[in-house]
Every structure is written in C-alpha cells, then in structure tokens.
Amino acid sequence: MINPVKAIHNANYIGILAWATLLGLALRNAPDTTKTMISNLSDAVSKMVTWVIKFAPLGIMGLVFESITKNGIESLLGYGRLLAVLLGCMVFVALVVNPIIVFVVIRQNPFPLVFKCLKESGVTAFFTRSSAANIPVNMRLCKNLGLDKDSYSVSIPLGATINMGGAAVTISVLTLAAVHTLGIQVDVPTAIILSVLSAVCACGASGVAGGGSLLPIPLACSLFGIPADVAMQVVGVGFIIGVLQDSCETALNSSTDVLFTATAEFKEWRKEGKEININKAA
C-alpha cells in the first residue's frame, strides 16, 4: 500500500480512502477524548469547506468569463448539454429504474406510489435542497401511507444521510464528461466500477448545501488517472450548473427514501397476505 503522506502529496484519493478506513478501524476503541478531538477537527474542516463554497460564485464567474472569452457565447451551450444529460439521467432513475425495483419487489403497478413520493416529498426537497430538512415531510408521508413507525423512524433519517442516488448520478456523469473531454476510452467493466465507486462516495458525501455531491468527484476522476487540477475544474463546472443539479438531485434522494421504505414494508405485507392497495396512495 502506498505511503499515506505520499498519497496526500500526490492526491491519490484511493490511497487516502484506504488509509482513512484503516485509521477509523484502529480508533474504534480510542478514548472518548480522542474521538471528541477528531469530531471537532471534522467540524472545523466542514466549516472551512462551507466558507470556500460561499466564495465559489466568484470562482465560477471567473470560469464562465474565461470560457466565453476563449470560445464565445456558444460555450454556454456545452453547459446546457451537460445539464440536460445530468437531469435526464436523474429522470431515468426516478421514472424507470426505481419503478422496476418496486415492481420486482411487490409485483404491482409501482407508478401510483412513485408519483406520490415525487409529488409530496420530491417537490418539497427540490426547493429546500436539503434531505435533512425534508425529514419531517417524509415522516408525515410514511404515516399517511400507513407504514410502521418503528421502521420509518429509522429508515428515513438514515436514508437522508446515506441514500444518495442523485449524488451517485452526479458523480458518475460529471466524471464521464471529463473522461470524454480528455479522449479517454472507457470500457463497460470500468464504467461499472465507476458506478460502484460513485455510489460508495455518495453515501459519504458531505452535508454541506450545494457542494456535497461535487467534492467526491476528484476521487472518481483518479480512477482514470485524471490530475487533481483537472478534476477540480470539473467540480467548478458542477458549481456552474449547481442550482438545478442540486435541486433535482435532492428531490430524487429524498423521494427515494420514502419509496424504498414503503416498498420494503409492502413486501412484508405481501408475505403476510395483507392487501396492498397502492392506488389509494395516489
């Protein structure tokens, strides 16, 4: 395994992640004072990231100005196409992938439940741009669906933290956009590895509003040997399209929390022979 100091110096994110995992396991039995110090250090780093993100509009303005100066106003079309691909993937997950998963589990038409979750949870999350802030909305929706409180009182807060399907889409699409721009060929196995890596990174994405799903992008880019400076330019592009991207991403994340919670409980109802009338959810 690569030296941890060298991994940090060379921005080897895979090496950093491996050492961080080992360090976390080694500190499981550390004294409470040590854990408190590490927690305080983590909070301080998150605070600094928040400050950086607040100044991000100035950097974004510079990126847009430089792009327009070099390539003309037509360069804005590139951002539009990237945003269209990104949002199109999220819509595909919400209206194709998720319904297939629900149908396989409960063997009924999934769309009434899917649309209810998008309407009552996704719309609110779209405007709040925060899965955590949308927890009360999801809890109320689960109650209206007649779900077991002992189940959704655990799954909804947990899902708001680690169920980040929209973030995984963002990481994968922006990384593949960078790979395509640099002319790097990607085969199917590598794309699958990227998808798995994106899903894992999304689970640990920062809770900082507007930047959580963008910060793991350098880690995903390192899979293709993309330098850190180029990867951070991809993050900058993400901030440019961040308003719509983050809103749609949060809507997908939050609505899926309720969707999968309901799906898991409906599966148990099906085993017990209880009636599952999803149409009432519409």
Rank of each mutant, 00 (worst) to 15 (best):
V188I: 01
F103L: 11
L219A: 14
T190N: 11
G165C: 05
L141Q: 08
G211D: 09
D148Q: 10
E66R: 09
S39T: 15
S130Q: 04
A264N: 11
T128Y: 00
Q108E: 12
T34C: 07
T128D: 05
S255K: 03
A18R: 06
V173P: 01
Q233W: 00
I184M: 15
L113W: 00
K119D: 11
S151A: 06
T69L: 12
K280D: 11
V45P: 00
D257M: 14
L194C: 07
C201N: 13
L244P: 00
I53H: 09
V52Y: 11
V186F: 08
T181S: 08
I38K: 02
E74C: 07
I192F: 14
K274L: 08
T256W: 00
N12C: 08
I53F: 15
R107E: 13
Y152V: 00
N134Q: 04
E275V: 11
I240F: 13
A160I: 01
I8L: 08
I73H: 00
G236N: 06
I276T: 12
N279K: 09
A262N: 05
A264S: 12
T256M: 10
A20S: 14
I276Q: 03
A231N: 05
S213A: 15
P110F: 07
V64F: 15
N144Y: 02
M48N: 15
V230R: 15
A7H: 12
E265W: 00
L141P: 14
G204W: 01
A18Q: 11
T181Y: 01
G204I: 01
A205L: 05
N10E: 15
K35L: 14
G183C: 01
G166I: 11
A18E: 11
L215K: 02
I217V: 09
V234A: 04
T190E: 12
K267C: 02
L215E: 04
V5E: 12
H9T: 09
L219G: 02
R270N: 15
L86N: 07
N144M: 08
N29V: 03
V208I: 15
S39M: 12
W19N: 03
I162A: 02
V188C: 08
I193E: 09
I14A: 04
E272C: 04
L194I: 13
G80H: 03
F260T: 09
V97Q: 01
K70G: 01
S151M: 02
R129H: 02
G59D: 05
I240W: 12
G166W: 08
G212W: 10
C117M: 02
Q108M: 13
N277Q: 09
A191N: 05
V208Q: 14
T161N: 07
V188Y: 15
F55K: 10
S46P: 08
L145V: 08
G122S: 06
G166T: 13
I14D: 07
I38S: 04
